[in-house]
Amino acid sequence: MKNYFLWRNRVPITGAVLLLISAHFLWSGVRPDQRAARPRSLVMEGLAPVQIAAARLTEGGTGIIHDYLDLVGVQQENTRLRAELAREETQRARLAELEAENLHLSDLLELKQALALKAVAANVIGADASGLARTVVVEGGSDQGFEAGMAVLSTEGVVGKLIAVGPTSSRVLLINDHNSALDAFDQRSRVRGIVAGMVDDGLVIKYVDRSEDVKSGDTIVTSGLDGIFPRGLLVGEVSAVLREGPGLFLTVNVAPAADFRRLEQVLVLTQKIPQPPPAEPKG
């Protein structure tokens, strides 16, 4: 009788057991280096050639259309100038940061070291499979020295960090994903906070006290204290500061500097940033 029941309900029972296993994955928070997560990189690797081919096809198709529409090469010139402008913007933010560092008597040498890290360029070959999360797949993996947790940048600013690394492809968690967080500060007022992603693709700075001086238009840069991103990299610009409502903290919305929908090439920092020495106990 028991066997009859099991046989009769074998499909829902199998499904229920599998649901429990997937719930276990969820609640236990499987890390990328654990056994249950390893086949994931195999799947990623399996699909990487298709994604690379599709990315090349997109580039080729876009190129033909652009060349047709723009016979005299204005498009290429425009692209070059935009890239140059973006570089100038990043440079300007870095210079302003250097100036601010001098004013606050901080260690300039540390910043110079932070900006002279080894980096590898990588093509973006795929986006997130669902509409909810914000991740991209890049060409390049452990063969190029990539490791989970490494910082990913673009010429416009901070992009995200590696969360899964296969031999030839890796996945990047973008800073506008709702599970992403990085330590940053306001370049003008030096107010620190945690920049987190929001579901509407924007960013928000968490844990900023209501009494702090933060204004729309302020530049937000990385603090270097999270051990992932070097200090002084452009994150974005404050787009709104909401002082109304309950709670201890301000709501500070930030427009990201990087355009995540147009990412084509990124820079992966393959060298860990130097950590500040631990504070010595007083007394």
Binding site: G15, A16, F25, V30, G126, D128, V137
Partner: peptide
């Protein structure tokens, strides 16, 4: 599980959703 390889930062969300959809 395969979808989890290409979506989000947490393993299990799509595995759970797709299995639940099947059931």
């Amino acid at each position: 599980y395969a979808m989890d390889a290409f979506s989000g930062s947490q393993l299990g969300i799509n595995t759970f959703a797709v299995t639940l959809t099947y059931l």
